[in-house]
Design a protein around this nucleic acid. Structure first.
Lengths: 147, 147
DNA sequence: CCTGCTATTAGTAATTATTACTGTTTTTAT
DNA sequence: ATAAAAACAGTAATAATTACTAATAGCAGG
């Protein structure tokens, strides 16, 4: 949970706690918890705006940062570019569609002993790992096959 | 000539081949192949400019895209934000320092049977997976421990 | 050797996701 | 009740990447 000292990472180091459950915060949590699609900040913004039309994107980002920092939700860096958010803070894996970008949970239990294989073989102090499967979702599988 | 899609996906679909080995292309390959640090496009840009001062950043990106598309190098989306490039096109895993962002190869063989565990359990057509370890590099380990 | 055709280039503009800043409002603590 | 802290909306700035444009370079066929 410690990252390097660019702006965003500096904030993570501070381990700032969520103090108050503001309406904005509450709504962000609510829309995230009824969404299994691992939405991006922008998608969450759209969903929250339906309930709180005057909410600002900065508030979305700030609160997603606070909530993931305090362990209530999880921030995912899947596939490279954009960040996605997961209401489920527990460690689990994901599978991503290479065609449309859809992300689902991968139905496989965390591999706890995986890091043991590196002990002694790497100069790093190992803290964790992320595992991501890639494939085609049902809709894109159909399109991809020329039938 | 252009299917409607996001830029990067469109380009991936085209599977455009590298036709000529231009000096720019050759230099990009050369600097990448003598660098085990998995440099970013910007770092490669700096390295190439030492040999070809007038090269442009767009050329770096375009050629890294072409070279990874044709399988000569590998494009990595490690840790989320920026992309890094690997002279080694063979499948292997990486470990990233959470503090300074350093990336090294992880000394562990690819888990070939991992995807089998998902067959029948997911609605996706599985194509592959990426596994990334997180930890602290030696330098950052020392700093992190209060001694 | 010329002519035309693409691939490629440098340089620049645009885009996207995210982070930072600013002035105001809201909540908490005294 | 009042001062301090936290959070907010709105906007500006940044970083990485992608797209565009006009010029150049190298090959293919006559």
């Amino acid at each position: 949970m410690f990252l390097r000292n660019t702006g965003k990472d500096r904030r993570a180091l501070e381990k700032k706690q969520v103090r108050r459950m503001t309406p904005q915060r509450k709504t962000i949590l609510a829309v995230l918890r009824q969404d299994n699609a691992h939405p991006s900040a922008d998608e969450i913004y759209d969903l929250v705006r339906k309930r709180l039309p005057s909410v600002s994107l900065g508030t979305i980002y700030r609160n997603l940062e606070l909530l993931s920092g305090s362990g209530e939700i999880q921030k995912l860096a899947i596939g490279g570019t954009i960040k996605r958010y997961d209401w489920n803070p527990k460690k689990h894996y994901h599978i991503r569609c290479l065609r449309c970008g859809r992300v689902d949970d991968a139905p496989i239990a965390p591999l706890k002993q995986l890091e043991n294989e590196l002990y002694g073989a790497t100069i790093y102090t190992i803290i964790g790992h992320t595992l991501e499967f890639e494939g085609l979702c049902p809709a894109c599988s159909k399109q991809a096959e020329p039938v």
